[in-house]
Design a protein around this nucleic acid. Structure first.
Lengths: 202, 202
DNA sequence: AAAGAAAATGAACACTGTTCATTTTTCCAA
DNA sequence: TTGGAAAAATGAACAGTGTTCATTTTCTTT
C-alpha cells in the first residue's frame, strides 16, 4: 500500500481516537462540561492537535450526531420484515423508545441539545430527514391499508413523532421525577401502550 | 417606614433588577451564552455585586424557572370556568401550547434545559408539581364523567403531557425544520387537532 | 545525510464563574 | 456634626474555557 493511503488511514484513526474520547466524555459529563483540554488529555495529545482534525468543538458534536442517527437507522432495519403497516408503525415506535432509553445521551445530542449554528444550513440533517421519511412512508402504507383516512402525512407524522419525543425528552431531562415514586421506564411503557391502543381505535 | 423595611425593599429591587437583566439576556442569547459579567454590565454594577444577591448563576436560573411556572399557572386560571371536564382538558392543552409558542425560552428553561444539580432535592419543583396535579385532577374529572375508563391517572397524564411537551420541545429546539416548507405553528395546531380528535374518540 | 513537508506542540488571547481583600457608602449614637 | 461601625459595592485574582499560531518535532523524499 502506498504511503498516501497509510497517511489517509492514520488520519482517520486519529479522528476516531478523538471521537471515541469525546463520546465517552460527552456521555459521561455532558457536552458543555467537557473541554477540548479534557479530550486532549484523555488521548494524550496536546489541545492544539484536535484542531488539526476538527475545525471546532461543534464539529465533534456534529460527527457524533451523525453517528447516533446511523445507529438509530440501523436499529430500524428489521422493520422491513414486518408485513402489516400498522404493526410496522408500532414496532417503529417501540424501537425509537428503546433507542432513547438505552442511549439517553445520544438521544439528547440528536434531538434535544441546542444544535450548533453551523448545522442549520449544511447537509447535517440528511440522516434525520432519512429517518423522518421512513416514518412518513410507514404512515402512507397505513393509509393505503385504510387507516388514518384523510389525515395529512406531515401533520400525522409530526403528531406521532411529538408523542414519542415527548416521552423521551421528559425522560432524558429528568422531568419524570415529577412522578416521584413511579419508575420512569414503566411510565414510558404504559404511556406507549395507551398511545398504540388509541392509534388502533383511530 | 423604618429603615430596615426600606433596606429590605431595596434588596428586593436589586434582585428584580438583576433578574430583569438576566431574563432579557437569557431569552436573547441563551443561558450558557450569557455571562455574569454580561448581566453586571447591563445593570451597570460590578460582577461581584451579583453574588451578594444570588449564591451562584444557577440560582438566577432557578428564580426565572419559578417565575415561568407562576406565569403558566396564572394562564390556567380561566379553566375553572369551563364546566365540561373534557373541554377543560382540551382547553388546558391549548393554553399549554400557547404558553410554549409565546414564551419559547421560558418553556425551554422550565422543561428542556438541564436543570442545575442543586435543584434536584430542594423545593424547586413545587410549582411544577402544582401544575401536574392540576392536569391529573382534570383527568380524574374526565373519568368521573365516564371517559378514559380503567386508565391509571399517572400513566394517562404522562402520556398527554408527553404529547404536548413533544410538540413544544421540537418547536423550541428547531427540529420542525425537518418539515422545511411547513410553518411550525400550523404544524403544531394541526397536530393538536388530531390529538384532541383522537382523545375524543378514545 | 539534507531538505522539505507534515504533524504536534504549548504558550498566548480573550473569555468564563466565583471569591475576597479592599474601598466606598450608609447609618446611627455621641 | 462628627466618628466609627456596619453594609454594600468593587475589581483584581484564580482556575478554568475555546481557539490560534509561531515554533519544534517527526516523517518522507531526494
Amino acid at each position: 500500500m502506498s504511503i498516501a493511503t497509510r497517511k489517509q488511514r492514520e488520519k482517520e484513526e486519529m479522528r476516531s481516537l478523538i471521537l471515541d474520547a469525546a463520546r465517552t466524555l460527552f456521555l459521561e459529563k455532558g457536552y458543555f462540561e467537557t473541554s477540548i483540554r479534557n479530550i486532549a488529555e484523555k488521548i494524550e495529545y496536546s489541545p492544539g492537535t484536535i484542531y488539526l482534525y476538527f475545525k471546532e468543538k461543534d464539529d465533534i458534536f456534529y460527527a457524533l450526531h451523525q453517528e447516533g442517527f446511523r445507529k438509530l437507522i440501523a436499529m430500524m432495519e428489521p422493520l422491513q420484515f414486518v408485513a402489516d403497516p400498522f404493526e410496522r408503525l408500532t414496532a417503529m415506535g417501540r424501537i425509537y423508545m428503546e433507542f432513547a432509553k438505552n442511549n439517553k445521551d445520544f438521544y439528547d445530542l440528536m434531538f434535544i441539545m441546542q444544535a450548533p449554528m453551523n448545522m442549520e444550513q449544511d447537509d447535517c440533517w440528511v440522516e434525520g430527514d432519512h429517518a423522518l421519511e421512513h416514518l412518513k412512508q410507514v404512515l402512507r402504507d397505513c393509509q393505503a391499508a385504510g387507516r388514518f383516512q384523510g389525515k395529512d402525512i406531515d401533520d400525522l407524522s409530526f403528531f406521532i413523532w411529538s408523542t414519542m419525543h415527548g416521552m423521551a425528552a421528559l425522560y432524558c431531562r429528568e422531568r419524570c421525577q415529577a412522578y416521584d415514586d413511579k419508575d420512569p421506564l414503566t411510565l414510558i411503557d404504559n404511556s406507549f401502550k395507551i398511545f398504540t391502543e388509541m392509534l388502533a381505535k383511530f
